[in-house]
Design a protein around this nucleic acid. Structure first.
Lengths: 229, 229
DNA sequence: GCAAAAGTGTTAGGTGTACACCCATGA
DNA sequence: TCATGGGTGTACACCTAACACTTTTGC
């Protein structure tokens, strides 16, 4: 053991995942019931202890996969929470990650297995420890990032309509947007590809599907283009 | 010991501080020589191991005070770095914090004691582990925050001139700004207080001192005002 | 008196924002 | 045929960005 290190304290480390989904014009947060003491059966974020053989991101992905059945998801670190008594059991430092997932890929059967549920984001009640704080911090990061990076598409299926996309941004920013201005702005960017078919589930006329063209976006970005809503 | 926890791994945790100062139109980073193996005497950020009886922020403040002699400094978490082999000794997860300090308050004598120095930010060479990454991440956070929050003032003395303030933003964004537009914008916000005296160190005519009025800023913010450059 | 930095207004172009009507379709 | 959501263009206000000369003063 490296000499100077050996005199130092060691700590439990966990990852907690703020998993967000979007459907029907609303943002939803995945919540489960804690499986062990202390605070067993209370509402909690999805979490797990860090293992010796994995990176932080790997641990977060592992937890995410366990609870959603999805891999290769958009994930970002929210921050690290280390107050001495934040965990009522032992001292645990927790690294929070948020994930934006496409609900169509979510494996519903896992809900029962883990005692989990989707809760409307603005109706989330008390969670254990500082988990509500983590959710708040996530929303504030999401709000500042979504305006300048095309994050939103992670919350939508591969094919989506413009009314859907708009309602997503309305949910994120808790505000109404002007339909014409929104369409103009997002289409002018040239990062959406109109599809030939329509979604008729929300109206009789149907709304054209679009796809986000990531390659085009990456190419544009290299020439100094900035996404901005 | 709480039953389920006891089966879990524990980890070393450190904090690393990205300490930034501003003078003469340039941003500077505080760098020191590592005091122990591995990589002893290599360039490193200021860091320290987390102790059992302190919060993460306390640890960061402790390290900051040790190396600068300053307390009550603007500090924010940058992120947490946990790759398995990031530390070449043992596995250590590190939480990075950046601090913006007023160089006039800095205790120069501590440089010798810790083998530390101020290095021009864009001339910083290789640092140990992932410390260069931490610095990069800090700059990117600083750039996005400084445009919408009055962070800059933390890097200046209590009394500063408008040319100084402008050159600070020019250093942060690596760009030239128009003098008239800059002055108009910042003065219109109504968060600066012109002083009666001048700084004559940079010109014969001298430039008026200003102070940042935090109370006024806080009051404005409550009425929906947003700082933005 | 001159060099060197501080200070000061105006204009044109572009961007954001507000706003109302027709279209397509299934029931 | 009618109710419902999808789709479209314009005008005005505002903000941004570009631009040049005068002032002060120590040397």
């Amino acid at each position: 053991m490296t000499p100077f290190y050996i005199e130092q304290e060691k700590f439990f480390l966990s990852v907690d995942c703020i998993i967000l989904g979007f459907t029907n014009g609303k943002l939803y947060l995945l919540i489960s019931k804690r499986k062990f003491e202390p605070l067993k059966n209370q509402d909690t974020l999805m979490g797990g202890f860090l293992r010796a053989n994995e990176d932080l991101e790997e641990a977060a992905s592992r937890v995410l996969y366990e609870y959603t059945g999805i891999r290769d998801v958009y994930m970002e670190q929210v921050g690290t929470y280390g107050s001495i008594h934040r965990d009522e059991g032992e001292r645990v430092i927790s690294v929070a990650y948020y994930a934006l997932i496409d609900l169509e890929l979510f494996d519903e059967t896992l809900c029962k297995r883990h005692n989990a549920r989707w809760e409307e984001l603005d109706k989330v009640g008390p969670l254990i420890f500082d988990h509500n704080q983590m959710v708040e911090d996530t929303i504030s990061i999401l709000r500042s990032k979504a305006a300048v990076q095309p994050l939103g598409f992670n919350l939508l299926p591969e094919k989506f309509t413009l009314p859907q996309l708009q309602s997503l941004y309305e949910a994120i920013y808790q505000t109404k947007l002007d339909k014409r201005n929104f369409r103009k702005k997002i289409l002018e960017m040239g990062i959406l590809e109109k599809q030939g078919d329509k979604d008729k589930s929300a109206s009789k006329r149907g709304a054209f599907y679009y796809k986000f063209n990531k390659d085009k976006y990456d190419r544009l970005r290299e020439t100094g283009f900035f996404f901005s809503l």
